[in-house]
Simulated assay, not measured.
Amino acid sequence: MPQIALVTGATSGFGQSIARRFVAEGWSVIVTGRRKDRLDELVAELGGAAQAYGLCFDIRDEEATRQALASLPPVFQGVDALVNNAGLALGTGTADTCDLAEWRTMIDTNINGLVTITRLMLDGLIARRGLVVNLASIASNWPYPGGNVYGGTKAFVRQFSLGLRSDLSSRGVRVTSIEPGLSESEFTLVRTGGDKAAYDKLYQGASPLQPKDIAETVYWVASLPAHVNINSIEIMPVSQSWAPFQIHRETTAQPER
């Protein structure tokens, strides 16, 4: 029987490439997302029902997540690797200009959705001595203007991964946090509200990471021997490095006290 990976957020970008990479190595995959048309296309591309299975639901909805997992046919119920890829960023403004609803959407998706599906699948992963791969970000470690809540959610993902690692080390379950830097995908169009000019400007001349690069990294982690755990990987394009420390310089006189 082939091993099975469940990849969340598989309707675009990293998730699609990760699913393709696992199938190329003989795994079966369960792909999840909110866009049924894209899921159906991906399942067909990956070989149909014999190789892939689509679950269409909103990961922010606990009951929908429970029902989706419960609906898996027997042949897809023994998951060996959970890849928590579903996530998003909304907005690029400073904290005082941000939309509170967008903050809550990021928290509900990047934190609540991730911990819900992880907890619901944990007993099975323990039974199979499986693997959890969580997609965090370099924003887990390195703040930047406009990162605010998005960076906070990814810092949670990184720390949650380390906590899982600590709790599960005696149960044979491997846990990895993957923390990409500048990466070209639909993620940025979502963040900017579909602003293609901003998308093009961000990536121009930068040779950013591509979804295939992240897929290769995730599969490498999964392909290692069962006694080897990669705790975290911070991965950037060669063109990206750490920015100078931010310094605000006063341009007006200080108010009198």
Rank of each mutant, 00 (worst) to 15 (best):
T92P: 05
P73R: 14
T116H: 03
D108T: 07
Q77I: 06
I111P: 00
R104E: 15
V75H: 10
D96P: 05
G124L: 03
A89D: 13
P73H: 12
L131F: 14
G87T: 01
I111W: 05
A95R: 08
G93E: 15
N84F: 04
G130C: 06
D96Q: 15
L120M: 05
N84G: 14
D61M: 07
D80F: 11
I111D: 00
D99W: 12
T109S: 08
G113V: 02
V83M: 05
L125P: 00
R104H: 14
L72G: 08
I126W: 15
L82I: 10
V75M: 08
L120S: 07
G93N: 13
I117R: 00
A101E: 15
A86T: 03
T105V: 11
E63Q: 13
R119V: 11
N85Y: 07
G91N: 14
G130W: 01
T116N: 03
E102Y: 14
D123T: 13
G87F: 02
L82A: 10
A101M: 12
V75L: 07
W103S: 06
I111L: 05
G87S: 02
F76A: 07
A81E: 05
Q77C: 10
N134T: 03
A86S: 04
A81G: 09
L122S: 10
Q67S: 07
T105K: 11
L88Q: 13
A70N: 05
D58H: 05
T92M: 12
L69M: 07
G87K: 00
E63L: 10
M121P: 05
L72M: 06
D58Q: 11
A101V: 13
T105M: 07
L82K: 10
R66T: 03
M106G: 08
L120F: 06
Q77G: 07
R119P: 10
R60N: 08
I117N: 01
